Structures are given as C-alpha cells and as structure tokens.
Measured scan of single mutants.
Amino acid sequence: NKFNKELQWATWEIFNLPNLNEEQVKAFIDSLRDDPSQSANLLAEAKKLNDAQA
C-alpha cells in the first residue's frame, strides 16, 4: 500500500531529524497517524522546522 510505505518513510525521517525536540517529534508522528495521506506535507513541515531550529 502506497500510503503505508510513505507513512513508514515519513515516520523514520521525522524520528531522525536532529533539531526537533521530543514533543515536536511526537506531535508530527501523531499527525501522521491521524492522516497518513498527509505524510509528504507533514514531512516537509517537519524538515522546515528542523532547519529553522538548526
């Protein structure tokens, strides 16, 4: 299933962003679980936040 692979990839990527704190990671993962179809958008937002906090 396409969404499942995207969800797994986005989850792994978010867990490995070095500049997000635990609460931010949890919030993004919760959002992914709530709406897996938004995984690409949520990953992009997480990466933006990660870069901003570098």
Rank of each mutant, 00 (worst) to 15 (best):
D30T: 10
W12A: 14
K2D: 15
A46Q: 01
V25A: 08
A52H: 11
F28A: 02
Q53Y: 06
K48D: 06
K5F: 03
P18W: 05
S31L: 12
R33M: 15
W12K: 14
A27K: 11
Q24H: 02
E6M: 08
D35I: 05
K26Y: 08
A10G: 03
A46T: 01
I14N: 01
A40S: 09
A54S: 12
F15V: 14
N4G: 14
Q38F: 06
T11K: 07
P36V: 05
D34G: 08
K5R: 04
K5M: 03
E23L: 09
I14K: 01
S39Q: 07
R33K: 12
K2V: 07
P18A: 08
L32W: 02
Q24V: 03
Q8R: 05
A44K: 11
K48I: 09
E13T: 06
L43D: 00
K5V: 06
F3V: 14
A27Y: 14
L43F: 04
A10S: 02
D51M: 08
N4M: 11
F28Y: 07
Q53K: 05
E6A: 05
Q8D: 12
S37A: 09
S37R: 08
A46E: 00
A44E: 09
D30G: 09
F15K: 15
F3K: 13
K48N: 08
D51F: 10
L49P: 00
Q38G: 07
E13H: 05
N21L: 09
S37Y: 07
A52D: 08
D34V: 11
K2N: 15
T11R: 05
D30Q: 11
N16M: 09
K47F: 06
L7D: 04
L7A: 07
A52S: 10
L20Q: 00
E45L: 06
Q8P: 02
E13L: 12
K2I: 15
K47L: 06
P18Y: 08
A52K: 11
A46F: 02
V25W: 02
E23N: 12
E45A: 11
A54T: 11
L7Q: 04
S39K: 03
N19R: 02
D51H: 08
N21I: 06
N21D: 09
F28K: 00
D30P: 00
A10T: 08
S31M: 14
I29F: 05
F3M: 14
K5Q: 14
A44N: 09
K5N: 13
D51E: 09
K5T: 11
I29K: 01
E13K: 07
P18N: 06
S37P: 03
L20A: 00
N50D: 05
W9H: 12
P18L: 08
L43S: 02
A10H: 07
I29P: 00
N16Y: 04
S31P: 01
L43N: 01
L32N: 00
K2A: 15
E6H: 06
L43K: 02
A54M: 09
E22F: 12
D30K: 06
N4L: 14
T11H: 04
E6F: 11
R33A: 14
S37K: 08
L42Q: 04
T11Q: 12
K2Q: 14
D35N: 09
N16S: 08
Q38N: 11
Q38D: 08
N21M: 09
N50Y: 01
S37W: 06
L32H: 01
W12V: 13
N41S: 14
D35K: 12
K2W: 14
V25T: 07
K48G: 05
A54Q: 13
L49Y: 04
D34T: 12
L43T: 05
P18H: 08
A40N: 09
S39R: 03
K26V: 05
A44T: 07
